[in-house]
Design a protein around this nucleic acid. Structure first.
Lengths: 232, 232
DNA sequence: TCTCGTATAATTGTATACAATCCGAATAAT
DNA sequence: ATTATTCGGATTGTATACAATTATACGAGA
Protein backbone atom coordinates (compact mmCIF):
# COMPACT_ATOMS: atom_id res chain seq x y z
CA UNK A 1 0.00 0.00 0.00
CA UNK A 2 2.69 2.45 0.95
CA UNK A 3 4.67 1.65 -2.16
CA UNK A 4 1.82 3.02 -4.21
CA UNK A 5 2.85 6.63 -3.86
CA UNK A 6 5.34 6.67 -6.62
CA UNK A 7 5.35 10.12 -7.85
CA UNK A 8 3.96 12.86 -5.80
CA UNK A 9 6.06 12.08 -2.82
CA UNK A 10 8.90 13.29 -4.94
CA UNK A 11 8.01 16.50 -3.17
CA UNK A 12 11.43 16.33 -1.76
CA UNK A 13 11.12 19.63 0.01
CA UNK A 14 14.57 19.49 1.44
CA UNK A 15 16.75 19.15 -1.60
CA UNK A 16 17.60 22.14 -3.68
CA UNK A 17 16.30 20.42 -6.77
CA UNK A 18 12.97 19.79 -5.07
CA UNK A 19 12.69 23.37 -3.92
CA UNK A 20 13.54 24.73 -7.34
CA UNK A 21 11.04 22.36 -8.91
CA UNK A 22 8.23 23.44 -6.64
CA UNK A 23 9.06 27.11 -6.89
CA UNK A 24 9.09 27.03 -10.67
CA UNK A 25 5.89 25.02 -10.88
CA UNK A 26 4.20 27.44 -8.57
CA UNK A 27 5.45 30.40 -10.58
CA UNK A 28 4.41 28.94 -13.90
CA UNK A 29 0.95 27.96 -12.76
CA UNK A 30 0.42 31.23 -10.93
CA UNK A 31 1.27 33.13 -14.06
CA UNK A 32 4.53 34.75 -12.98
CA UNK A 33 6.21 33.20 -15.97
CA UNK A 34 4.03 33.62 -18.97
CA UNK A 35 3.50 31.32 -21.90
CA UNK A 36 6.38 31.01 -24.35
CA UNK A 37 8.71 32.81 -21.97
CA UNK A 38 12.24 31.46 -21.98
CA UNK A 39 13.71 30.27 -18.73
CA UNK A 40 17.49 30.46 -18.50
CA UNK A 41 19.37 28.17 -16.21
CA UNK A 42 21.81 30.73 -14.86
CA UNK A 43 19.16 33.38 -14.32
CA UNK A 44 16.91 31.04 -12.35
CA UNK A 45 19.92 29.73 -10.47
CA UNK A 46 21.06 33.17 -9.43
CA UNK A 47 17.56 34.21 -8.47
CA UNK A 48 17.26 31.24 -6.13
CA UNK A 49 20.86 31.21 -5.06
CA UNK A 50 21.77 27.80 -6.42
CA UNK A 51 23.94 26.48 -9.19
CA UNK A 52 22.77 25.27 -12.57
CA UNK A 53 22.72 21.60 -11.63
CA UNK A 54 19.57 21.52 -9.50
CA UNK A 55 17.92 23.96 -11.88
CA UNK A 56 18.55 21.67 -14.83
CA UNK A 57 17.13 18.69 -13.00
CA UNK A 58 14.06 20.67 -12.06
CA UNK A 59 13.67 21.70 -15.69
CA UNK A 60 13.62 18.08 -16.78
CA UNK A 61 10.92 17.29 -14.29
CA UNK A 62 8.85 20.25 -15.32
CA UNK A 63 9.13 19.15 -18.90
CA UNK A 64 7.69 15.76 -18.02
CA UNK A 65 4.90 17.50 -16.18
CA UNK A 66 4.17 19.31 -19.39
CA UNK A 67 4.83 22.77 -18.00
CA UNK A 68 8.06 23.35 -19.84
CA UNK A 69 9.20 22.58 -23.32
CA UNK A 70 12.92 22.02 -23.61
CA UNK A 71 14.46 22.42 -27.02
CA UNK A 72 17.85 20.73 -27.08
CA UNK A 73 20.75 23.15 -27.16
CA UNK A 74 18.37 26.06 -27.25
CA UNK A 75 16.33 26.66 -24.18
CA UNK A 76 13.39 25.96 -21.94
CA UNK A 77 10.09 27.59 -22.74
CA UNK A 78 7.02 27.87 -20.56
CA UNK A 79 4.10 25.87 -21.86
CA UNK A 80 1.43 27.19 -19.60
CA UNK A 81 -2.13 25.99 -19.53
CA UNK A 82 -4.94 27.25 -21.68
CA UNK A 83 -8.66 27.37 -21.05
CA UNK A 84 -9.02 24.52 -23.49
CA UNK A 85 -6.49 22.44 -21.59
CA UNK A 86 -8.53 22.88 -18.47
CA UNK A 87 -11.67 21.90 -20.30
CA UNK A 88 -9.99 18.81 -21.72
CA UNK A 89 -8.64 17.82 -18.36
CA UNK A 90 -12.10 17.92 -16.84
CA UNK A 91 -13.44 15.91 -19.72
CA UNK A 92 -10.78 13.26 -19.18
CA UNK A 93 -11.18 13.37 -15.44
CA UNK A 94 -14.90 12.90 -15.78
CA UNK A 95 -14.32 9.56 -17.44
CA UNK A 96 -11.47 8.46 -15.21
CA UNK A 97 -13.02 9.51 -11.93
CA UNK A 98 -16.02 7.50 -13.00
CA UNK A 99 -13.86 4.47 -13.62
CA UNK A 100 -12.11 5.12 -10.35
CA UNK A 101 -15.37 5.22 -8.42
CA UNK A 102 -16.45 2.02 -10.14
CA UNK A 103 -13.28 0.22 -9.14
CA UNK A 104 -13.35 1.67 -5.66
CA UNK A 105 -16.78 0.15 -5.16
CA UNK A 106 -15.14 -3.24 -5.26
CA UNK A 107 -11.81 -2.47 -3.71
CA UNK A 108 -12.31 0.13 -1.02
CA UNK A 109 -11.15 -0.84 2.44
CA UNK A 110 -13.01 -0.28 5.63
CA UNK A 111 -10.50 2.35 6.72
CA UNK A 112 -10.83 4.26 3.49
CA UNK A 113 -14.60 4.13 3.71
CA UNK A 114 -14.47 5.52 7.20
CA UNK A 115 -12.12 8.32 6.22
CA UNK A 116 -14.43 9.19 3.38
CA UNK A 117 -17.43 9.44 5.66
CA UNK A 118 -15.47 11.49 8.13
CA UNK A 119 -14.32 13.75 5.32
CA UNK A 120 -17.87 14.50 4.28
CA UNK A 121 -18.98 15.06 7.83
CA UNK A 122 -16.12 17.46 8.49
CA UNK A 123 -16.68 19.30 5.24
CA UNK A 124 -20.25 19.99 6.27
CA UNK A 125 -19.07 21.33 9.58
CA UNK A 126 -16.54 23.70 8.03
CA UNK A 127 -19.10 24.73 5.45
CA UNK A 128 -21.37 25.91 8.24
CA UNK A 129 -18.52 27.84 9.78
CA UNK A 130 -17.37 29.29 6.48
CA UNK A 131 -13.82 27.94 6.75
CA UNK A 132 -12.83 28.20 3.10
CA UNK A 133 -9.32 26.80 3.46
CA UNK A 134 -10.42 23.68 5.26
CA UNK A 135 -13.21 23.15 2.77
CA UNK A 136 -10.77 23.24 -0.13
CA UNK A 137 -8.40 20.93 1.74
CA UNK A 138 -11.13 18.41 2.44
CA UNK A 139 -12.35 18.54 -1.11
CA UNK A 140 -8.89 17.65 -2.37
CA UNK A 141 -8.55 14.95 0.21
CA UNK A 142 -11.85 13.37 -0.77
CA UNK A 143 -10.59 12.85 -4.27
CA UNK A 144 -7.27 11.51 -3.07
CA UNK A 145 -9.05 8.95 -0.93
CA UNK A 146 -11.07 7.89 -3.93
CA UNK A 147 -7.92 7.55 -6.02
CA UNK A 148 -6.26 5.41 -3.40
CA UNK A 149 -9.36 3.30 -2.97
CA UNK A 150 -9.52 2.19 -6.60
CA UNK A 151 -6.47 0.01 -5.97
CA UNK A 152 -4.85 0.88 -9.28
CA UNK A 153 -1.43 2.41 -9.22
CA UNK A 154 -1.71 3.58 -12.80
CA UNK A 155 -5.12 5.16 -12.43
CA UNK A 156 -4.26 6.77 -9.13
CA UNK A 157 -1.10 8.15 -10.63
CA UNK A 158 -2.88 9.57 -13.65
CA UNK A 159 -5.69 11.14 -11.69
CA UNK A 160 -3.39 12.71 -9.16
CA UNK A 161 -1.48 14.25 -12.02
CA UNK A 162 -4.54 15.88 -13.47
CA UNK A 163 -5.86 16.85 -10.08
CA UNK A 164 -2.61 18.56 -9.20
CA UNK A 165 -2.65 20.27 -12.53
CA UNK A 166 -5.99 21.96 -12.11
CA UNK A 167 -5.55 22.69 -8.42
CA UNK A 168 -3.63 25.87 -9.01
CA UNK A 169 -6.17 27.11 -11.49
CA UNK A 170 -8.93 26.44 -9.07
CA UNK A 171 -7.28 28.40 -6.30
CA UNK A 172 -8.02 31.54 -8.23
CA UNK A 173 -11.63 30.80 -8.92
CA UNK A 174 -12.34 29.50 -5.46
CA UNK A 175 -12.54 32.89 -3.85
CA UNK A 176 -16.05 33.33 -5.15
CA UNK A 177 -16.90 29.71 -4.63
CA UNK A 178 -20.51 29.09 -3.88
CA UNK A 179 -20.43 25.43 -4.76
CA UNK A 180 -18.98 24.08 -1.56
CA UNK A 181 -22.20 22.68 -0.24
CA UNK A 182 -23.37 21.26 -3.54
CA UNK A 183 -19.97 19.69 -4.08
CA UNK A 184 -19.99 18.07 -0.69
CA UNK A 185 -23.49 16.78 -1.28
CA UNK A 186 -22.24 15.13 -4.46
CA UNK A 187 -19.39 13.61 -2.51
CA UNK A 188 -21.90 12.16 -0.13
CA UNK A 189 -23.90 10.60 -2.93
CA UNK A 190 -20.81 9.05 -4.45
CA UNK A 191 -19.79 7.72 -1.08
CA UNK A 192 -23.21 6.22 -0.49
CA UNK A 193 -23.27 4.55 -3.89
CA UNK A 194 -19.90 2.98 -3.14
CA UNK A 195 -21.06 1.91 0.28
CA UNK A 196 -24.09 0.24 -1.23
CA UNK A 197 -21.85 -1.46 -3.79
CA UNK A 198 -23.70 0.17 -6.65
CA UNK A 199 -20.83 0.57 -9.11
CA UNK A 200 -22.94 1.88 -11.96
CA UNK A 201 -24.40 4.65 -9.87
CA UNK A 202 -21.04 5.53 -8.35
CA UNK A 203 -19.55 5.84 -11.80
CA UNK A 204 -22.31 8.05 -13.13
CA UNK A 205 -22.25 10.29 -10.08
CA UNK A 206 -18.50 10.72 -10.30
CA UNK A 207 -18.82 11.54 -13.99
CA UNK A 208 -21.40 14.19 -13.28
CA UNK A 209 -19.47 15.57 -10.33
CA UNK A 210 -16.64 16.53 -12.67
CA UNK A 211 -18.98 18.03 -15.22
CA UNK A 212 -20.56 20.15 -12.51
CA UNK A 213 -17.19 21.22 -11.14
CA UNK A 214 -16.14 22.37 -14.58
CA UNK A 215 -19.37 24.20 -15.27
CA UNK A 216 -18.99 26.03 -12.01
CA UNK A 217 -15.46 27.02 -12.89
CA UNK A 218 -16.54 28.45 -16.19
CA UNK A 219 -19.33 30.36 -14.53
CA UNK A 220 -16.86 31.84 -12.10
CA UNK A 221 -14.86 33.34 -14.88
CA UNK A 222 -12.17 30.90 -15.94
CA UNK A 223 -12.07 32.33 -19.41
CA UNK A 224 -11.30 35.82 -18.27
CA UNK A 225 -8.28 34.59 -16.43
CA UNK A 226 -6.73 32.49 -19.11
CA UNK A 227 -8.22 33.84 -22.27
CA UNK A 228 -10.17 31.67 -24.61
CA UNK A 229 -7.62 29.92 -26.76
CA UNK A 230 -9.96 27.08 -27.54
CA UNK A 231 -10.28 28.29 -31.09
CA UNK A 232 -6.57 28.45 -31.76
CA UNK B 1 -0.25 21.88 -34.61
CA UNK B 2 3.44 21.25 -34.33
CA UNK B 3 3.57 22.68 -30.85
CA UNK B 4 1.27 19.95 -29.71
CA UNK B 5 4.00 17.38 -29.26
CA UNK B 6 5.15 18.39 -25.88
CA UNK B 7 6.57 15.35 -24.39
CA UNK B 8 7.56 12.44 -26.45
CA UNK B 9 9.64 14.43 -28.79
CA UNK B 10 11.87 14.64 -25.83
CA UNK B 11 13.17 11.54 -27.50
CA UNK B 12 16.21 13.55 -28.02
CA UNK B 13 18.14 10.69 -29.49
CA UNK B 14 21.26 12.74 -29.93
CA UNK B 15 21.96 13.93 -26.45
CA UNK B 16 23.63 11.67 -23.96
CA UNK B 17 20.85 12.21 -21.50
CA UNK B 18 18.29 11.17 -24.08
CA UNK B 19 20.20 8.06 -24.97
CA UNK B 20 20.69 7.08 -21.36
CA UNK B 21 17.02 7.68 -20.69
CA UNK B 22 15.91 5.48 -23.56
CA UNK B 23 18.41 2.78 -22.80
CA UNK B 24 17.38 2.58 -19.19
CA UNK B 25 13.68 2.62 -19.99
CA UNK B 26 14.23 -0.14 -22.47
CA UNK B 27 16.21 -2.17 -19.98
CA UNK B 28 13.70 -1.73 -17.20
CA UNK B 29 10.70 -2.62 -19.34
CA UNK B 30 12.50 -5.52 -20.95
CA UNK B 31 13.33 -6.92 -17.57
CA UNK B 32 17.10 -6.53 -17.62
CA UNK B 33 16.85 -4.58 -14.41
CA UNK B 34 14.49 -6.31 -12.08
CA UNK B 35 12.08 -4.82 -9.65
CA UNK B 36 13.57 -3.29 -6.50
CA UNK B 37 17.04 -3.45 -8.00
CA UNK B 38 19.21 -0.48 -7.13
CA UNK B 39 20.66 1.57 -9.96
CA UNK B 40 23.89 3.37 -9.15
CA UNK B 41 24.83 6.48 -11.02
CA UNK B 42 28.50 5.69 -11.50
CA UNK B 43 27.87 2.10 -12.51
CA UNK B 44 25.37 3.07 -15.20
CA UNK B 45 27.61 5.89 -16.28
CA UNK B 46 30.62 3.63 -16.71
CA UNK B 47 28.58 1.02 -18.50
CA UNK B 48 27.41 3.56 -21.05
CA UNK B 49 30.61 5.53 -21.10
CA UNK B 50 29.21 8.80 -19.79
CA UNK B 51 29.53 10.83 -16.64
CA UNK B 52 27.06 11.00 -13.82
CA UNK B 53 25.37 14.16 -15.01
CA UNK B 54 23.33 12.77 -17.92
CA UNK B 55 22.61 9.65 -15.88
CA UNK B 56 21.15 11.70 -13.07
CA UNK B 57 18.94 13.63 -15.42
CA UNK B 58 17.72 10.42 -17.01
CA UNK B 59 16.97 9.06 -13.53
CA UNK B 60 14.76 12.06 -12.77
CA UNK B 61 12.81 11.52 -15.95
CA UNK B 62 12.42 7.84 -15.29
CA UNK B 63 11.12 8.65 -11.86
CA UNK B 64 8.41 10.85 -13.31
CA UNK B 65 7.54 8.06 -15.71
CA UNK B 66 7.04 5.87 -12.70
CA UNK B 67 9.74 3.39 -13.60
CA UNK B 68 12.16 4.44 -10.92
CA UNK B 69 11.77 5.41 -7.34
CA UNK B 70 14.41 7.79 -6.09
CA UNK B 71 14.96 7.97 -2.38
CA UNK B 72 16.84 11.17 -1.56
CA UNK B 73 20.43 10.60 -0.52
CA UNK B 74 20.00 6.88 -0.83
CA UNK B 75 19.45 5.57 -4.29
CA UNK B 76 17.28 4.81 -7.28
CA UNK B 77 15.22 1.65 -7.26
CA UNK B 78 13.50 0.01 -10.19
CA UNK B 79 9.73 0.03 -10.01
CA UNK B 80 9.00 -2.12 -13.00
CA UNK B 81 5.61 -2.84 -14.41
CA UNK B 82 3.30 -5.60 -13.30
CA UNK B 83 0.68 -7.57 -15.17
CA UNK B 84 -1.93 -5.61 -13.26
CA UNK B 85 -0.41 -2.33 -14.40
CA UNK B 86 -0.73 -3.45 -17.99
CA UNK B 87 -4.30 -4.47 -17.42
CA UNK B 88 -5.12 -1.13 -15.83
CA UNK B 89 -3.47 0.76 -18.63
CA UNK B 90 -5.63 -1.01 -21.19
CA UNK B 91 -8.69 -0.32 -19.12
CA UNK B 92 -7.84 3.37 -19.00
CA UNK B 93 -6.85 3.44 -22.63
CA UNK B 94 -10.13 1.82 -23.61
CA UNK B 95 -12.00 4.77 -22.18
CA UNK B 96 -9.65 7.43 -23.43
CA UNK B 97 -9.20 6.05 -26.94
CA UNK B 98 -12.97 6.03 -27.11
CA UNK B 99 -13.10 9.66 -26.10
CA UNK B 100 -10.31 10.39 -28.54
CA UNK B 101 -12.18 8.77 -31.41
CA UNK B 102 -15.29 10.71 -30.48
CA UNK B 103 -13.45 14.01 -30.54
CA UNK B 104 -11.59 13.10 -33.70
CA UNK B 105 -14.90 12.59 -35.44
CA UNK B 106 -15.46 16.30 -35.14
CA UNK B 107 -11.94 17.58 -35.41
CA UNK B 108 -10.06 15.40 -37.84
CA UNK B 109 -8.53 17.21 -40.81
CA UNK B 110 -8.64 16.07 -44.38
CA UNK B 111 -4.92 15.29 -44.32
CA UNK B 112 -5.24 13.19 -41.20
CA UNK B 113 -8.17 11.32 -42.66
CA UNK B 114 -6.17 10.57 -45.76
CA UNK B 115 -3.18 9.37 -43.80
CA UNK B 116 -5.45 7.12 -41.81
CA UNK B 117 -6.90 5.54 -44.93
CA UNK B 118 -3.46 5.13 -46.38
CA UNK B 119 -2.29 3.56 -43.17
CA UNK B 120 -4.99 0.93 -43.28
CA UNK B 121 -4.39 0.23 -46.93
CA UNK B 122 -0.68 -0.19 -46.37
CA UNK B 123 -1.20 -2.37 -43.34
CA UNK B 124 -3.28 -4.74 -45.43
CA UNK B 125 -0.55 -4.89 -48.02
CA UNK B 126 2.18 -5.70 -45.52
CA UNK B 127 -0.11 -8.19 -43.84
CA UNK B 128 -0.34 -10.09 -47.10
CA UNK B 129 3.42 -10.04 -47.42
CA UNK B 130 4.00 -10.98 -43.82
CA UNK B 131 6.15 -7.94 -43.01
CA UNK B 132 5.89 -8.01 -39.25
CA UNK B 133 7.99 -4.93 -38.55
CA UNK B 134 6.03 -2.71 -40.88
CA UNK B 135 2.75 -4.01 -39.51
CA UNK B 136 3.77 -3.09 -35.99
CA UNK B 137 4.98 0.30 -37.15
CA UNK B 138 1.73 1.04 -38.95
CA UNK B 139 -0.31 -0.11 -36.02
CA UNK B 140 1.49 2.38 -33.79
CA UNK B 141 1.16 5.08 -36.33
CA UNK B 142 -2.58 4.55 -36.66
CA UNK B 143 -3.02 5.31 -33.02
CA UNK B 144 -0.75 8.31 -33.17
CA UNK B 145 -2.80 9.74 -36.02
CA UNK B 146 -5.92 9.25 -33.97
CA UNK B 147 -4.34 10.99 -31.00
CA UNK B 148 -3.32 13.92 -33.10
CA UNK B 149 -6.72 14.10 -34.73
CA UNK B 150 -8.63 14.60 -31.49
CA UNK B 151 -7.18 18.09 -31.28
CA UNK B 152 -6.58 17.90 -27.57
CA UNK B 153 -3.05 18.43 -26.36
CA UNK B 154 -3.84 16.92 -22.98
CA UNK B 155 -5.53 13.83 -24.30
CA UNK B 156 -2.92 13.26 -26.96
CA UNK B 157 -0.22 13.62 -24.38
CA UNK B 158 -1.84 11.18 -21.99
CA UNK B 159 -2.56 8.57 -24.61
CA UNK B 160 0.91 8.73 -26.10
CA UNK B 161 2.29 8.16 -22.65
CA UNK B 162 0.30 5.02 -22.11
CA UNK B 163 0.89 3.84 -25.62
CA UNK B 164 4.63 4.21 -25.24
CA UNK B 165 4.43 2.43 -21.96
CA UNK B 166 2.83 -0.71 -23.25
CA UNK B 167 4.79 -0.74 -26.50
CA UNK B 168 7.77 -2.34 -24.87
CA UNK B 169 5.67 -4.96 -23.23
CA UNK B 170 3.96 -5.74 -26.49
CA UNK B 171 7.20 -6.32 -28.28
CA UNK B 172 7.56 -9.53 -26.38
CA UNK B 173 4.13 -10.86 -27.13
CA UNK B 174 4.17 -9.77 -30.73
CA UNK B 175 6.32 -12.60 -31.96
CA UNK B 176 3.33 -14.92 -31.94
CA UNK B 177 0.95 -12.23 -33.05
CA UNK B 178 -1.92 -13.52 -35.09
CA UNK B 179 -4.11 -10.51 -34.59
CA UNK B 180 -2.67 -8.28 -37.26
CA UNK B 181 -5.51 -8.71 -39.68
CA UNK B 182 -8.25 -8.48 -37.09
CA UNK B 183 -6.62 -5.41 -35.61
CA UNK B 184 -6.39 -3.70 -38.95
CA UNK B 185 -10.00 -4.54 -39.68
CA UNK B 186 -10.95 -2.81 -36.45
CA UNK B 187 -8.90 0.18 -37.46
CA UNK B 188 -10.84 0.29 -40.68
CA UNK B 189 -14.15 0.25 -38.86
CA UNK B 190 -13.06 3.04 -36.55
CA UNK B 191 -11.88 5.04 -39.53
CA UNK B 192 -15.17 4.55 -41.34
CA UNK B 193 -17.20 5.57 -38.34
CA UNK B 194 -15.17 8.75 -38.07
CA UNK B 195 -15.52 9.39 -41.76
CA UNK B 196 -19.27 9.03 -41.51
CA UNK B 197 -19.26 11.39 -38.51
CA UNK B 198 -20.78 8.74 -36.29
CA UNK B 199 -19.13 9.69 -33.01
CA UNK B 200 -21.02 7.19 -30.90
CA UNK B 201 -20.00 4.29 -33.09
CA UNK B 202 -16.41 5.48 -33.32
CA UNK B 203 -16.20 5.68 -29.56
CA UNK B 204 -17.63 2.22 -29.01
CA UNK B 205 -15.39 0.67 -31.63
CA UNK B 206 -12.29 2.28 -30.16
CA UNK B 207 -13.32 1.05 -26.71
CA UNK B 208 -13.69 -2.46 -27.97
CA UNK B 209 -10.47 -2.32 -29.97
CA UNK B 210 -8.54 -1.85 -26.77
CA UNK B 211 -10.40 -4.60 -25.00
CA UNK B 212 -9.59 -6.95 -27.84
CA UNK B 213 -5.96 -5.92 -27.91
CA UNK B 214 -5.67 -6.66 -24.23
CA UNK B 215 -7.41 -10.00 -24.48
CA UNK B 216 -5.05 -10.98 -27.23
CA UNK B 217 -2.09 -10.03 -25.13
CA UNK B 218 -3.26 -12.13 -22.24
CA UNK B 219 -3.85 -15.05 -24.55
CA UNK B 220 -0.33 -14.75 -25.84
CA UNK B 221 1.07 -15.23 -22.42
CA UNK B 222 1.48 -11.87 -20.73
CA UNK B 223 1.07 -13.39 -17.31
CA UNK B 224 3.87 -15.85 -17.71
CA UNK B 225 6.22 -13.06 -18.49
CA UNK B 226 5.37 -10.73 -15.68
CA UNK B 227 3.83 -13.01 -13.17
CA UNK B 228 0.37 -12.38 -11.86
CA UNK B 229 0.74 -9.79 -9.17
CA UNK B 230 -2.84 -8.70 -9.46
CA UNK B 231 -3.61 -10.16 -6.09
CA UNK B 232 -0.86 -8.36 -4.23
C1' DT C 1 20.72 46.86 -50.95
C1' DC C 2 20.85 42.11 -50.32
C1' DT C 3 23.07 37.82 -49.33
C1' DC C 4 26.39 35.00 -47.61
C1' DG C 5 29.89 33.84 -44.44
C1' DT C 6 32.61 34.39 -40.46
C1' DA C 7 33.52 35.68 -35.82
C1' DT C 8 31.93 36.28 -31.35
C1' DA C 9 28.94 36.02 -27.50
C1' DA C 10 25.50 33.57 -25.06
C1' DT C 11 23.53 29.30 -23.70
C1' DT C 12 23.11 24.60 -23.07
C1' DG C 13 25.49 19.81 -22.65
C1' DT C 14 28.80 17.15 -20.19
C1' DA C 15 32.57 16.06 -17.04
C1' DT C 16 34.70 16.49 -12.84
C1' DA C 17 35.62 18.13 -8.21
C1' DC C 18 33.97 18.76 -3.74
C1' DA C 19 30.39 18.49 0.14
C1' DA C 20 26.85 16.15 2.65
C1' DT C 21 24.64 12.06 3.88
C1' DC C 22 23.95 7.33 4.78
C1' DC C 23 25.27 2.62 5.96
C1' DG C 24 27.83 -0.86 8.03
C1' DA C 25 31.71 -2.69 10.40
C1' DA C 26 34.80 -2.49 14.04
C1' DT C 27 35.39 -1.34 18.66
C1' DA C 28 34.31 0.03 23.26
C1' DA C 29 31.23 0.07 27.23
C1' DT C 30 27.92 -2.18 30.10
C1' DA D 1 26.92 -11.30 24.88
C1' DT D 2 24.64 -7.21 23.73
C1' DT D 3 24.18 -2.60 22.87
C1' DA D 4 26.32 2.12 21.74
C1' DT D 5 29.43 4.68 19.34
C1' DT D 6 32.55 6.12 16.23
C1' DC D 7 34.89 5.86 12.06
C1' DG D 8 35.50 4.89 7.11
C1' DG D 9 33.82 3.89 2.70
C1' DA D 10 30.36 4.37 -0.62
C1' DT D 11 26.83 7.04 -2.70
C1' DT D 12 24.20 10.91 -3.72
C1' DG D 13 23.78 16.25 -3.82
C1' DT D 14 25.75 20.45 -5.49
C1' DA D 15 29.03 23.53 -7.63
C1' DT D 16 32.09 24.62 -11.09
C1' DA D 17 34.93 24.07 -15.18
C1' DC D 18 35.11 22.97 -19.88
C1' DA D 19 33.11 21.56 -24.55
C1' DA D 20 29.64 21.89 -28.03
C1' DT D 21 26.06 24.23 -30.04
C1' DT D 22 23.28 28.07 -31.39
C1' DA D 23 22.10 32.82 -32.35
C1' DT D 24 23.48 37.37 -33.50
C1' DA D 25 26.07 40.98 -35.42
C1' DC D 26 29.04 42.64 -38.55
C1' DG D 27 31.37 43.08 -42.78
C1' DA D 28 32.71 41.63 -47.52
C1' DG D 29 31.27 40.76 -52.03
C1' DA D 30 27.88 40.81 -55.67
Amino acid sequence: MASYDIKHDVNDKYSLRGRVFQKLREDILSGKYKEHEELKEVAIGEELGVSRTPVREAFRQLELEGLLQIVPNKGAYVTGITAKDVKDIYMIRSLLEGLCARLATEKITKEQMEEMEENIYLAEFHEDKGHLDQIAELDNRFHDILYEACDSKMLEHTLKDFHQYVLRVRQRTLATNTRGRASNEEHRQIMEAIKEKDADRAEKLANQHMVNAYDNMVKNGLKEIYGDESTS
